[in-house]
């Protein structure tokens, strides 16, 4: 589950001028229960990426409290945060695949960081690659793939370790209609199994197809929770 109380976030000051960066999130409070699904909506610059970054433990709130999967973030030690990150799957807008590694190894990363046996890694990776339709591209490297294929690899990597929380930033941008529908079905299934899911998107058609609770941000403030 996710719980934010009066969370504000400002990026670290940068540049020689010493001017403070603008506040990205202001007094945001909401909660998502275990297995909950939330759309994260709002125009560009509203703070969606900043919120996803906080939820992915890529930064700590400037003020306010953030509780994730039963752990309060502020007092948590680095080792505890690392363990928590292993229970989160993230689909980045820019995929963030490692160009030097084959698709197989990119997808296997979360399992290997959990020190799972290689036999199990091999079976799981092939199963998920077959599911996203890339079973025959396991040996290819990301630069050899199309945008849609790279996005599917990123999705496979985000869910292969059955995380407790999935965060997805525009996960259907490069997918065709069919793949987008399959992805949403997967999210529904995962949600049913207890995985909490937050999906940031601008895709109105997708939202219409799968009506769900939405969090809407504007100028860093939460303007809708329902």
């Amino acid at each position: 589950m996710i719980r934010l109380r009066d969370v504000s976030f400002r990026y670290e000051t940068a540049g020689a001028s010493g001017a403070q960066a603008p506040v990205a999130l202001r007094q945001v409070s909401f909660a998502v229960p275990q297995g909950g699904f939330r759309w994260l909506l709002g125009p560009s610059g509203a703070g969606k990426s900043s919120l996803l970054r906080l939820l992915a433990l890529g930064a700590r709130p400037t003020t306010g409290t953030l509780e994730l999967l039963g752990t309060s973030i502020a007092p948590a030690r680095r080792a505890a945060l690392a363990r928590l990150r292993r229970r989160i799957g993230v689909v980045h807008q820019d995929f963030r695949l490692l160009p030097d590694l084959p698709v197989f190894d990119n997808v296997a990363l979360p399992l290997r960081l959990q020190r799972r046996p290689e036999d199990e890694v091999r079976d799981e990776v092939h199963a998920i690659l077959d599911w996203v339709g890339l079973g025959s591209r396991a040996a290819a490297r990301p630069p050899q793939l199309s945008g849609g294929e790279q996005q599917r690899v990123a999705i496979a990597r985000a869910v292969i370790h059955r995380p407790a929380l999935v965060l997805a930033d525009e996960p259907t941008n490069a997918l065709d209609e069919h793949q987008a529908t399959r992805l949403m079905d997967l999210f529904r299934d995962l949600s049913g199994l207890g995985t909490t899911i937050v999906v940031a998107t601008h895709n109105d058609a997708l939202i219409r197809r799968r009506p769900a609770h939405a969090l809407e941000l504007a100028h860093g403030r939460l303007v809708r929770d329902g």
Partner: peptide, 24 residues
């Protein structure tokens, strides 16, 4: 496909160690 063939234990251990993207 190469990945589907089960490699030896040592090879798998080496593979797992170098396949974390650090490329040391």
């Amino acid at each position: 496909m190469a990945e589907r063939a089960a490699p030896g234990l040592l090879a798998r251990w080496h593979r797992a160690r170098r396949a974390d993207g650090l490329a040391l």
